[in-house]
Design a protein around this nucleic acid. Structure first.
Lengths: 216, 216, 216, 216
DNA sequence: CATGAATGAGAGTTCATTCAT
DNA sequence: GATGAATGAACTCTCATTCAT
């Protein structure tokens, strides 16, 4: 009978559908986690609470994630995608790309929190390298356009890499101080300081570009 | 006759001795807290564990501290004293003072953690203003010598304040990236980047000093 | 064909069974709470102790009850059900119903304690209205038959309500004095005093009934 | 020398003075306990808090009282003195004396709480008989005038005793219901119900007095 | 896949009481 | 008499995780 032949096909189709459904439900959990985390912060976002908001019991989440950390890793993954999208949409050039990076975190402080969840206080955290590596890669990706723009301005690859790392550190420092209210202590404002840093960076690097263009 | 006079003196002496003993024991608890915290991080350093290491029952700590937060505030207070001492001992000048600040935290990463205990993830924390304010003041104190050195180089007060804030942010960013291993991601090293930043800062600010000296 | 129909039925049956099992276990916890409370009183009946006797870890009780208060509310609920059953089983008439009420608490002094758990010392307690209201209703229910009997004897609704409230107060007072040994202080006995009060109540109210009956 | 002779006298005087001072300080502690208890209730009135308000450390209270219970017993003792004073000041007669008793507790609910502190929930409490007995006696004293008035009305001693015990129970029940808000449940009011009870009591007992007076 | 129950560890905090000084 | 420190036990409650069903 045809049914005996069709079964495997049907099974395969059902398997695909089921996998799709599973992914969808995983996304729903993730969405719930996101909302929970954005509303209550890292403290309040217990697995119980996430599960509750997702309409599940705590145990159910373990069908989709191996641990609470994995949930957060997934959230961070999504956050980094948004960051990369923001950077990609920004105008070309050092200023455009670097500002996009800075602004993304300035405007979405919870995404910054998420980035720091990997560390406790400040220690490296229990993300397995398997989870950690692609996240790192996406972070690097978000800075690559700035580095490329620096190279396009005539900077050597090494120098551009160093410059972008320093820029990243500066951004992180500024945002951290801003987010924790420490910057007010010095009667300063993070956006203005960032602008100053950027202007100095461009002053240091642009001349070579201009010189090169002049020669051409 | 003399006895009637001596009594109060004796009482006073006894009071002093007792207060000294009390402070000593408080310090022992604090030391235990420090060790616990350095070994286990903020998560692992529960009141119970601190008490255990100090040779006390949990409740006993409440003779010395009103809450866990207060223990940490005290630890942070001590840490900031050490920082200020290191900065004070450093050679005069922007380079000397700024490097002392940077080096203190580079060499004592746990003190950096401690500084960040005030924030959860990264949110401001439940330290009462009464505890928080003097701590903030001591942090400002540690940066004051650098600011004064910048002023001595001829910078206006405003500019010096902005410059020192940016420097602080840069240091924090570099150390954070370094401490969390993120800086390796970019194949860079925090000390070299700090040196670069410092050189640029001096290049930006020293000329005016030199010019002034030339005029003289 | 039949299998597709049976599945939901089986699921339904399983759900029912599980719910029944859950209720059973909840009842076991409640029984443990009851025993604990009867043996150790309200002070000694901590969540830990109740859990221990129920063969659980303390945290496990939170599957069944949201808080310690809820455990006690549940106990009180059961107690009031027993009270209502006792009153329902009693002979009709003021004497029957009122005596059933009195006797229930005289014979089960712990149930009286339970009733007073709602108050601290004697202040109203933190039972949410959601928990408190149905309990109050069941208490009123237990006195309703007496009130109805008074109305049947010819008393106006208002008068019956006042009479039943006074009766309730008298019972509570007698039992309290009896239970705390204060009644012995006066060389009296609660049951005899209750009988006296009841006789006076009937003397005050019965005449109208008799008169009514005579007219008929 | 006279000093050697005077010493014992001086010692004796000093001893007396010291004892007086001690009693005074004990009273200060008691006052602090009273205030604490009236403000915070039985829950909030920990030994620590009482000591704090009395300007002592917790341990110091044990110079004046053997336990927390003893503090409360002392408070209750003072309360019963106030009660007796109120009753003594009331007009002669059943109505006057009984109303004074009722009103005292209606107007000072904390004194009622205090009375019930002897019981846990409702169990007899760990007051030693040595402490308990004089307290009981003073309670009986407060009811004696009512009993005597009943006897004066012509009631036999036995009947008067029973009547006063029932009255006491009724009062306790009414106040308890009133204080715990249970009386509202029945849309009644304790003072009105007390008045009703009193009127019935007088109706039951007064006739004999009137008859007696008529014969005279 | 999901539930519901349970674990086990632990959180910070409070308490009455004791006792050397 | 009073202090200040310490005990030891207890408190309710929360958590991430596991697992039989």
């Amino acid at each position: 009978m045809s049914t005996t032949l069709k079964r495997p096909v049907a099974d395969h189709a059902r398997g695909q559908r089921q996998r799709a459904v599973a992914e969808l439900r995983r996304d729903l959990v993730l969405q719930a986690a996101q909302v929970t985390f954005f509303e209550l912060g890292l403290e309040g976002a217990s697995l119980r609470e996430i599960a509750r908001r997702a309409g599940y019991t705590p145990g159910a989440l373990y069908s989709y994630f191996a641990s609470k950390e994995e949930v957060y890793a997934a959230l961070l993954g999504q956050s980094l995608e948004r960051l990369n999208a923001a950077v990609a949409a920004a105008p070309e050039g050092v200023r455009g790309k670097a500002s996009a990076f800075f602004d993304f975190y300035r405007e979405n402080p919870r995404d910054l929190d998420l980035g720091f969840y990997l560390f406790h206080g400040m220690q490296p955290r229990g993300l397995t390298p398997a989870l950690n590596q692609p996240l790192n890669a996406r972070l690097r990706d978000a800075l690559a356009p700035t580095r490329d723009a620096l190279v396009a301005e005539g900077l050597a690859a090494d120098a551009a890499q160093a410059e972008v790392t320093a820029l990243f550190a500066h951004i992180v420092g500024l945002l951290l101080l801003s987010h924790t209210g420490r910057i007010r202590m010095f009667r300063q404002e993070s956006a203005a300081l960032f602008e100053r840093y950027l202007a100095q960076l461009l002053a240091r690097t642009a001349p070579s570009a201009r010189r090169r263009k002049a020669r051409a």
